[in-house]
Computed example of a mutant assay.
Amino acid sequence: MKITPNVEALLDYIRPHKGRLLQAAVAMTVLAAMRGAIVYVVGPVIEGIFNDRNMEMLRLIVIGLPVIFVLKAVADYVTSYLINYVGQKTVQRMRDDLFTRVHQLSMEFHWRKRSSEVMSRVINDLAAVQSAVQSVPLYLIRDLFTVVALIGVLFYLNWRFAAVSVIIMPAAAALLRVLSKKMRRSSTRAQATMGHISHRFQESLQGMTVVKAFNYEERAIERFRRSNDDFFSETMRFLRASALSSPLMELLGNVMLILMIYMGGLEVMAGRMTSADFLSFMAAFFTAYMPLKNIASLNTRVQLGLASWDRVKEILDERPDVPPPAAPVRLGDVGG
């Protein structure tokens, strides 16, 4: 993703929490390592217990797996808590800055901007930004670490087989890039239209006596329906692009699964791969599927969050027409 000035401004809100993000990254690394360890032992466990009837293997699993599961649960909890803390604290500061900026601006801004539009940015847009801030580390970094750990398991088991399995990634990246641009544009327009809808509601409710006095009901309803239809159209454009990402990623994954079963069968028959390694390989592939799907669906939240942040940043960038003096003169006692 290109680091635009707006994205850089968003990162300025997140940087004060880099210590907690680093702690969360350590917890994510432990979590990814535990997932990789569980996947790696699947094949040898099945082979040793059910085929070779190895009692030592069974005792080792009964003792070792609970330790891995406890570490995984602790790492998962620490990750979720720290990321939620960063998201809440970041948006809290944004909300404070937005409220302060609105009160610092001249009346010209308040005449130019509808109050319902400002409220839409404070409530709807900040909620979308918070979702993106929390989701990016939680799903992108955590799931990316998991995928990297699982790919390491794949290459350790059989590098030739693994090299074929990762060809899905360039195709998936190209697909997400195309869909991202469409979702970003549609999301920006949809959020702006939602501001218009809020204004229509507020305008009619506050001025209902005027609407009734001038028999303006039908015209007000027509204007609202036009804005509502515009919002529906823009939202559906966004949802069409969003809905395409997961099925297309799933289709690519299914194609790879068929190819892997075929090639894995050839490797086992040729004696270049044991059945235990093949089971571990397939377990790693299936375990990586959900993190990859999360990364694909995360793109929707990211584009919505960035579009919402652009709208919030517009208000934060506003400056008063009459700035307060740098050295104000204090008046003394005034008599009349």
Rank of each mutant, 00 (worst) to 15 (best):
I258T: 13
L259K: 03
L259D: 04
M260D: 06
M260C: 12
I261P: 04
I261S: 11
M263L: 15
M263H: 13
G264D: 12
L266Q: 14
L266I: 14
L266T: 13
L266Y: 06
E267D: 14
V268Q: 01
V268H: 07
V268L: 01
A270P: 07
A270K: 14
A270Q: 14
G271K: 11
G271Q: 12
R272S: 15
R272Q: 14
M273W: 10
T274F: 09
T274E: 04
T274Q: 03
A276K: 02
F278Y: 14
L279T: 15
L279E: 03
L279Y: 10
S280E: 07
S280M: 05
S280D: 08
S280P: 05
F281C: 02
M282Y: 13
M282S: 08
A283N: 01
A283V: 08
A283Y: 07
A283R: 01
F285A: 11
F286S: 04
F286G: 00
F286I: 12
T287Y: 04
A288F: 06
A288W: 07
Y289I: 02
Y289W: 13
M290T: 12
P291M: 06
P291V: 10
L292Q: 00
L292G: 12
K293T: 04
N294P: 00
N294Q: 09
I295N: 02
I295M: 13
I295H: 02
A296T: 15
A296S: 07
A296F: 10
A296D: 05
S297A: 07
S297C: 02
L298M: 07
L298A: 01
L298V: 04
T300K: 11
R301W: 00
R301N: 11
V302M: 11
V302E: 03
Q303P: 09
L304V: 05
L306W: 09
A307S: 15
A307Q: 03
S308W: 06
S308P: 06
S308Q: 06
D310S: 12
R311Y: 05
R311W: 05
V312K: 10
E314S: 09
I315K: 09
L316E: 06
D317M: 00
E318R: 05
E318H: 01
E318Y: 01
E318V: 00
P320N: 02
D321S: 06
V322C: 04
P323K: 04
P323M: 03
P324N: 09
P325Q: 07
A326E: 12
